[in-house]
Nucleic acid binder design. Sequence first.
DNA 1: GGATTGATGTAAGAGCCTTTCACATAGATG
DNA 2: CATCTATGTGAAAGGCTCTTACATCAATCC
Lengths: 208, 208
Amino acid sequence: MSRRTYHHGNLREALINAALELIGEKGHAGFTFADAARLAGVSPAAPYRHFRDRDALMADVARRGFEQFEAVLTKAWNGGAPDPLRALRQLGQAYLAFARDEPAYYASMFEAGIPPGTDPALLQAGDRVFAILRQAAEAIATKLPEQGRPPALMIALHIWSLAHGIASLFGRGDAARRKLPMAPDDLLEAGVLVYLQGLGITRPAASG
Amino acid sequence: MSRRTYHHGNLREALINAALELIGEKGHAGFTFADAARLAGVSPAAPYRHFRDRDALMADVARRGFEQFEAVLTKAWNGGAPDPLRALRQLGQAYLAFARDEPAYYASMFEAGIPPGTDPALLQAGDRVFAILRQAAEAIATKLPEQGRPPALMIALHIWSLAHGIASLFGRGDAARRKLPMAPDDLLEAGVLVYLQGLGITRPAASG
DNA sequence: GGATTGATGTAAGAGCCTTTCACATAGATG
DNA sequence: CATCTATGTGAAAGGCTCTTACATCAATCC
């Protein structure tokens, strides 16, 4: 990772990648600014040209995490095709896959203790992710009689909370974490099916 | 907080209380061993007589958190009285109340990145908490026909995940965190009701 | 009672991290 | 080419973690 020029050329990106690598290895607490600088091959002071401090880098990683998350979820939802229920299953699987495959992003987004309100861009990126869930909930809700239908917002919050709870409690592959007698995907899918049944959307035992 | 004797007398407890106070103020990342020592009025080296390192103190705080959590949830469940559904509602409210009122405990238990497997006592304390939820799920499940009844374990995992998701995403009062258009309690209660309805336990619109 | 022993706290220091400041280098601009 | 600005370096202050040798005190044992 040594470079020939005095200037790195792409230090900002390199620091973010280094942070992801380090957070993935040692968790959000174990990551240090100095380590990231070392990984990028620059002096410990160099990162300060690109980020106000360590927390600013963490916040930027989190923001990018939300952006990647948004892309992944958007693709999975696929505009609700071929039908909202199938699309919702794809969405749930993509949610858990992201938490499993990108634990560094997920930790920076939800566990690093960055208050979303500190950075408007971060808040917006999070909102865009929620908008996808909200949109999915809307599509699902239209299957219900308008009379007495619960607000789509609430449905979205329920599904988000369930998915996040599963991802957070069981969804990362690290050893020494709590084990589950079934795959997180299956747990989420079963939970959503029961929930939708409770809303009156799916037929009982039509879980295929 | 100055003391007259050379020996503190109860440093272990004092350090844990200091840790709780500091984590409550500055989050699990902002807490330092040295700060805790200062708060307790001892030298920076003293804590090492009681905890192997900073992480060991965090793990002990987390273990105590689970123990307190267990006590609170046990009381709320109240053996399933007066009836399982009401008891379950109490349980859910107690769950969120703990996350709201004891954010320092909650953060140390679920967000500090302590792998539960590292400390058997920690793992056990967590298991005892889950046992309560599991027990509640059993009581609820007996209301279903044995034929085709989903495993109580799965019901427990669903409810735990939903509660944890809500607590984790919206349940702490810190400003700058994501706001919710309704109280977390109501969100959880509504979600559980829909879920139970999906299981075939509650009557539709019998949400009293 | 006095000496010994183990538990608990202190002092000092090595090593690392964060952050700042003055300075160095290079790319861009005119 | 000369200058301006962005970007990286070196050095240093201050704080944190953790270790080691030493100090203090309580309890125990002759």
